[in-house]
Design a protein around this nucleic acid. Sequence first.
RNA 1: CGGGAUGUAGCUCAGCCUGGUAGAGCACUACGUUCGGGACGUAGGAGUCGGAGGUUCAAAUCCUCUCAUCCCGACCA
Length: 555
Amino acid sequence: MVSHQLMLRAGLIRRLAAGIYTWTTLGLRTLRKVEAIIREEMDRAGALEVLMPAVQPAELWQESGRWDQYGPELLRLKDRHQRDFVIGPTHEEVITDLARRELKSYRQLPANFYQIQVKFRDEIRPRFGVMRGREFIMKDAYSFHATPESLQEGYDAMRAAYIRMFERMGLEFRPVKADTGSIGGTASEEFQVLADSGEDAIAVSDGPDQYAANLELAPTLPTTAPRAAPSAPLAKVATPGQRTIADVAAFLGVPASRTLKLLMVEGDQGGVVALLVRGDHELNAIKAQKLPGVASPLRMAAREAVLEATGCEPGYLGPLGLSCPVYADHAALALADFVCGANEVDMHLSGVNWGRDLPEPAPADLRNVVEGDPSPGGDGRLVIRRGIEVGHIFQLGRKYSEAMQASVLDESGKPVTMYMGCYGIGVTRIVAAAIEQNHDAAGICWPEPLAPFAVVLVPLNAAKAPRVAEAAERLYAELTAAGIETLLDDRDARPGVKFADAELIGIPHRIVVSERGLDAGRLEYRNRRATANEDWPADEVVTRLRALVAAGAAR
RNA sequence: CGGGAUGUAGCUCAGCCUGGUAGAGCACUACGUUCGGGACGUAGGAGUCGGAGGUUCAAAUCCUCUCAUCCCGACCA
């Protein structure tokens, strides 16, 4: 992960323990810039800032049910009286408790509370530095509404605020439709910063419909073209030792897209369920576990269960003669004259056709979309990109307010359970994501709104040339007085060292002060993203920088 | 949690197989030279060899346990 290496090399962070980092001055300054933009936009959107405790009593989590639902990711601890506490991985419980105590009337709604706070999630395997750390800073906001319509309005307002924030930060991002996961709720969108190194795959339409969704959520459309008529006879062929789709396809000389893959998963009442996808397609676990009869979360069936249901080892499974429930992906149902397992070791079937050789199973959307699939938005083709999730907004509905009895009195004096929205931003992760998107071979190239300093002053050979040191100090004082955040590299180091470090830490504007320049009444300017220097009249430096910095901040 | 690997100077690592004086490069300190793209010379400081126990005359090296870290996987608002 490039961003992590650069953050360490540039001295933005230092590791203390696995997934736990100290933010040093340079990194902290950028972190504060991110926070400031978030704070301004949240305030502008009418949200109220609060600060909730990191340590929370277990009772609230027992009330919501998440004390039992959450696994080892929830860091639990006991105080000296042996009472249970958690270090908050999120704050739905605490905010809902606050809301039910403070909000009594529909006339107080809608309300939106947010905080910028440290969270802790005991990740199984922390990695990529602050991108997936255990301790991290998050902005989390929670809105409360009397009606679903009001929730929708609040959600839309947050969505707009998020777009403003990420644009102000100079990030290339996409809002994408998302799965609500274990947090529950209905509508949900993620904000993904586009980066090849991102952990999430997202499907984006190349057409005018603007469709974008997390890969795990993007639906495939049923094939509209009529299926080809059977032309080959059903035949059993020996395929000794050919267990995988790739092996079988190569062995029989057919493309993987003409084969059928059978995946046996556990049923929700025990037993197994057969899922069929085209050989070259991937099963989508999120979609599969939502099917009636399929266990959630999705679990692959054990070898013994497969043997019991089919009398055959995995590797040669096929849909003919199965007695368990069967679902087939739309694309699998579009096949004709295809190859599949014969439910007999070392044997496959070829020339198989739905209807003629076996009954058609229940159709379903089972697979991940692939590049080139038609966009669910209706006007375009899907392209697969990778992204870093930096924000996620949810319409939670009444999941927590119901469990924790958070209600207000409506106009007729009757209690109504509040509707909730929740809106998260990974603050620390944004810093890493920004670097992931803005770097070159020499180091970080900060977007100006996030740069720890706007200007770096590099005096050359100042130790031996007092007038260089004096000129640099004077310029530093002038720039600082002009409100420009300036870093003065007054180290007694060689020029190459200073240039390399200035580039590594990614300060947008650089001014070199040298004897040569002073003699000519000129100073040298260079933008971090430029490859050549500019020669500036010394007396115009402050004015010019002020204009450049103002332009950078106004984006 | 499953699989794999690594813990020796601030950092990166060699030494371990075959037990016997703890090393290199970078970094650091002092002095001198140098000074527009990661300088050079001389001198110097620096290590409970992750921890505990064991074998042995003798353990960084062999054995046992333990802790930590990293990689792959499962996991993941």
